[in-house]
Design a binder for these strands. Structure first.
Lengths: 200, 200
DNA sequence: TCGTGTGAACGAATTCACAGCG
DNA sequence: CGCTGTGAATTCGTTCACACGA
C-alpha cells in the first residue's frame, strides 16, 4: 500500500487484505498502541513503521547457516531474507568437500569454528539445514555458541533451553496438511461430512 | 515408537512426546474415533494407521513442481516428501536454459505443457517455487490445469477458488517471528514486560 | 487398577456494538 | 459523518474430573 502511494487504510481495508475481520484488526493493533485516527483509519507509513518496530525489524539480524547442502544453498540464495533485514553472514558444514567452498563473498567453514565465528561476527540466529539425525547436535552447538534464536528446517523436533527462541519448519507437514485439506474439500463437495475448515 | 517396538502408548505418553496436555490428546483423537483401550492406552501401530488415514496419507500423491531455480531444486532433492507419500513427477519452468534439463529421471518442461501433463500424469498438487511476481499467474494455471491443492513458497499471498486447497509457506515470516520471539525473551529476562509467550 | 472418553466448568479469543473523537 | 478503541456479549477451545470398560 505504501508503494502504491496509499496514505491511509481502515481496519476494514486491512481486514480485506489479510483475510481476518475488521474488529480483529482493531483489537490486535490496539493491543500495541493507538495507531489509528477516528474517522480516518491508520496512516499507512506510520503503521508499517510501528509494526516493524513491534516485530523487531528495526535493525539487521546476523544469521548463521548450518548445512551447505541443497536446502542450505536454496536458503542462502533466497533474496527476501536480506530484504527483510536478515543477513546470512556465515555458513558451516562438516563435509570436507563443502568446507572451503566460496559462496558469494564468504567461505563455508567447519562447524568447529561456529563458536569463534559467532563471537567474532556477533551472530544472532542459527538456521539448521542438515539431515534430521544431526539436527539436535547442531542445535546444541548453536546454543552453546550463544545464538539467541534457532530456525530448524530439519525433519525432526528439537529441544533448546527456554532462553533461546525456536521455530521449526517442517516441509512434509505442509504437504500433509494440504492432503488433509483436499480430502476435506472432497468430502464437502459430496456433502458426505461436516467439519471442514478453511485453510490459507 | 513403532520402530522402537513400543506396542501401546497412553495419552500422557503422546502428550509428553508432542508438547501438549494429555486431555488435549484424548479430546482430539476421540473427535475422529475411539482408538484407545481403557486401562491400556492406544495401540501404536493401529493409531499410526488411523492417523495416516485421517490425514489422507493412505495413498501416494502426485506433485508438480513449478520453478526450477534454487528453491525448486532444493525441494526436488528433499527426500522426506517421497517418504511421506508425495512424489514429484513433473517439473516446469519458463526459462529456456532450464527447460530440457534432466533432473534425475525426468525432464524440466515449459509451463505451457502443464495442462497436458496434468491430465497425462494425473497430478494432484502443484508446488509454486517461482519469484513473487509470477506466483499468482502460476497459481491460476495450476488451477486451470485441474490441480486440487497448491503449496506456495513464493513471498506473496495468492488467491485460488475455494474448491482448491491452498497453503503458503513464507520463509521470511519464520525469521520475523523468531526476531519477535527473541525480543520477547529479552524483555522477559530484564523483567521489562509481560506478554511473552512460548514458541515452538 | 489404569487410562480412555466425555460432559461440565472454565478460560481464552473473537465478535458485537457503540461512545467518542477527528 | 466515518472509523477507531474498547467494554460487554458471545463463541470457541482447553482443562477438569470422573464414570466406566478393559
Amino acid at each position: 500500500m505504501e508503494t502504491e502511494g496509499q496514505r491511509t487504510v481502515s481496519s476494514q481495508g486491512l481486514a480485506h487484505a489479510s483475510g481476518v475481520t475488521s474488529a480483529q484488526v482493531r483489537k490486535d493493533l490496539s493491543y500495541f498502541g493507538n495507531f489509528g485516527k477516528r474517522g480516518l483509519g491508520y496512516a499507512v507509513a506510520r503503521l508499517r513503521k510501528e509494526i516493524r518496530l513491534i516485530l523487531g525489524l528495526n535493525r539487521r539480524w546476523r544469521v548463521a547457516l548450518v548445512g551447505a547442502g541443497n536446502m542450505g544453498s536454496a536458503l542462502f540464495a533466497y533474496k527476501e531474507f536480506r530484504r527483510q533485514g536478515f543477513d546470512i553472514v556465515a555458513v558451516f558444514d562438516v563435509s570436507a568437500d563443502r568446507i572451503g567452498q566460496k559462496w558469494r563473498d564468504l567461505t563455508v567453514r567447519h562447524i568447529d569454528e561456529l563458536r569463534a565465528e559467532t563471537e567474532r561476527l556477533g551472530l544472532d540466529i542459527g538456521v539448521i539445514a542438515v539431515p534430521a539425525r544431526s539436527a539436535q547436535g547442531v542445535a546444541d552447538r548453536l546454543v552453546a555458541a550463544g545464538m539467541r534464536g534457532v530456525l530448524n528446517f530439519a525433519h525432526r523436533r528439537i529441544q533448546v533451553p527456554p532462553s533461546v527462541a525456536l521455530r521449526t519448519v517442517n516441509l512434509s507437514i505442509e504437504l500433509e496438511s494440504l492432503a488433509f485439506a483436499i480430502k476435506a474439500l472432497g468430502a464437502k463437495a459430496t456433502g458426505a461430512s461436516r467439519r471442514t475448515r478453511a485453510t490459507a
